[in-house]
Design a protein around this nucleic acid. Structure first.
Lengths: 347, 347
DNA sequence: GTGAAAGCGCTAACAA
DNA sequence: TTGTTAGCGCTTTCAC
């Protein structure tokens, strides 16, 4: 039991109690192999008895490091189905802890400035490194941080600059969508539609390519089965209606299944089915979303969805991060993880 | 523009550049009113020119404070609709920033130990205070922290110990539900059912009391209109079916509206309506949830839901926190905020 | 209003 | 293997 009403123990307190020098106590903590077993034991005992914990501020000052990593919280768009951040944050904090790192959150003053917040934290030495998540809209942060040799790892690959050398981890959206196509085709669907995002979205086009290529791999046509628009429920609904209206013509039957670029869009598809009195599901129109959001888990009859392996993403990010912080080079410095499919009632 | 390839500027660097002592620079930062205007300007200019930012570790060491608050991330139950944490975290980080505080996340090693993680962070002086969110299952943390005079503010009132003196902020669930009842009754509903949680849940009973009392206020009967069970979609569905089966008897007509203790339960109600071919909405069966989760925003036709004012919760928490940290007493030390209603298609 | 001295608690570098 | 010395960058105290 730690001493209660005394002054907080320091290295000096412990050293005196154990009859050694302060340095020896420090070594007991940071380089125990340097000590003789009996000394180590004696010091350890004193530490336990006094309930000593090193003062981080002092250690940070001396070692010029904070053992903290910064994460900028991006505004999560209301009305989008996702809520991935919760899951990711949890995994990240867990993985960081194992590496002796803490996660410090910050938000920008100006949401539209992708760099806002980074320099301040760094200059004050509040963090040693960053995890950058906001890479979908290009990544000026990555460039900025990289130029200044600031340690960071990105969640999301640098679409604009495939040759960027900074470490990053990403999820293979293309493979995830291919998985969805396989799943549906294996269940006998041949008219599998895609509803995705605008052409300008690199992530959207990556995911879409999984649909196009896997459909063709399996000898299925993609003609008149694709729609692109905003990432909203409303768009998903409109697009689904439009595709389902495609009844006439010989090979142009209406789709029997939908693969969507996001759960948000998929929710719109489910609405459209409801509008038409169609039942989603294996016996009706199959629907697959992307993100395995809370909404996917909760909407009747359960939305089948591509699930990002965020736990593993966090593990890999921390691996790359610790390599960077130790000035080790990482092999490989880029990681692409494959998602899997959470199968539910809609397929 | 900050000097690039030079060593990082310190107080001493700035002092020399401005031709003053280190102390004067420190004062310029922390007590600018002590300086003559021209000195202040000269120092300020040197600071800007060199791009100087105080080193937090050094300041922390000297002031024995970290300007950081710890927040323990609780595992968010998969399959529940909520996702409030995202919204709350964001608001909290924002509010903290205005008070010069940063939010440090941690997770417990052992999820079942409500104290796990707190002592370590505190002993290492990594944080000055905590925000405690996990108060629904009693609050041993609050007691533990309070006994040790550790500054903290709880999100959630101490149900088990109404006389606890620690500062807390909570949302008035009872008032939120009453709001929902008013909303439905104003639209002509008289048979308004409640589907909530087990009697053992203090929060659940608080919310339920809003229904009971407001129904009686308005002269409406609550007989045979109440169900209590788990916080799952499946339970919501079963309970809704059971209540809707109540057709016979004179005053015991089936309900025309449902107020639910959570969006999760409300999703189950929506499923039950679907099962029966009933349409949710103002012209059909009205449904109101609680939490204004992503699912509520996204499920067709949009679930009306009680929305917690998390932004204001964060503001109040930070107010209480800064009072505590300044050894000021707060008036009032307990805050109960009233939620409002996000009205959507189901009502 | 400004400056000099001391020290927060720790660890790197070196000496014994 | 252990101890000594110095100093990380800042703020508190007190003198001027």
């Amino acid at each position: 039991m730690p001493a209660r009403h005394r002054t907080v123990p320091t290295l000096a307190t412990v050293a005196e109690a154990a009859g050694v020098s302060r340095q020896t106590v420090s070594n007991a903590l940071n380089s125990p192999h340097l000590l003789r077993n009996d000394t180590l034991a004696r010091v350890q005992q004193a530490i336990d008895r006094l309930g000593y914990t090193p003062n981080r501020a002092a250690r940070n000052l001396r070692t010029r490091s904070s053992q903290q990593v910064g994460l900028r919280l991006e505004p999560s768009p209301e009305g989008s189905a996702s809520g991935l951040m919760d899951r990711f944050l949890h995994s990240l904090v867990d993985s960081c802890k194992e590496a002796g790192l803490h996660v410090l959150l910050f938000t920008p003053e100006d949401v539209n400035d992708p760099l806002d917040g980074y320099p301040e934290l760094l200059a004050s030495r509040a963090v040693d490194a960053f995890v950058v998540t906001d890479t979908y809209r290009g990544n000026p942060q990555a460039t900025w941080l990289d130029e200044r040799m600031i340690p960071f790892v990105a969640f999301g690959r640098p679409w604009d600059d495939p040759h960027a050398t900074h470490p990053w981890v990403d999820v293979d959206g293309r493979a995830g969508v291919a998985l969805a196509v396989d799943h549906l085709a294996d269940r006998g669907h041949t008219r599998i539609a895609w509803i995705g995002w605008q052409k300008s979205s690199r992530i959207g086009e990556d995911r879409r390519s999984g649909w196009v290529d896997r459909m063709h791999d399996r000898g299925l046509s993609t003609t008149r089965l694709s729609a692109r628009g905003e990432d909203t429920i409303e768009y998903g609904r409109r697009a689904a209606h439009a595709l389902l209206d495609n009844e006439e013509g010989s090979s142009d039957e209406a789709p029997t299944a939908f693969v969507c670029a996001s759960d948000t869009v998929a929710m719109g598809v489910l609405q459209a089915l409801g509008d038409r009195g169609l039942r989603p599901g294996p016996d009706g129109i199959a629907v697959v979303g992307f993100d395995d959001s809370l909404a996917a888990q909760v909407v009747p009859p359960g939305l089948t969805s591509v699930r990002q392996p965020l736990e593993e993403v966090a593990v890999q990010i921390v691996r790359l991060l610790t390599d960077r912080l130790a000035l080790r080079s990482s092999e490989p410095p880029h990681v692409i993880l494959t998602p899997d499919l959470s199968i539910r009632g809609t397929s």
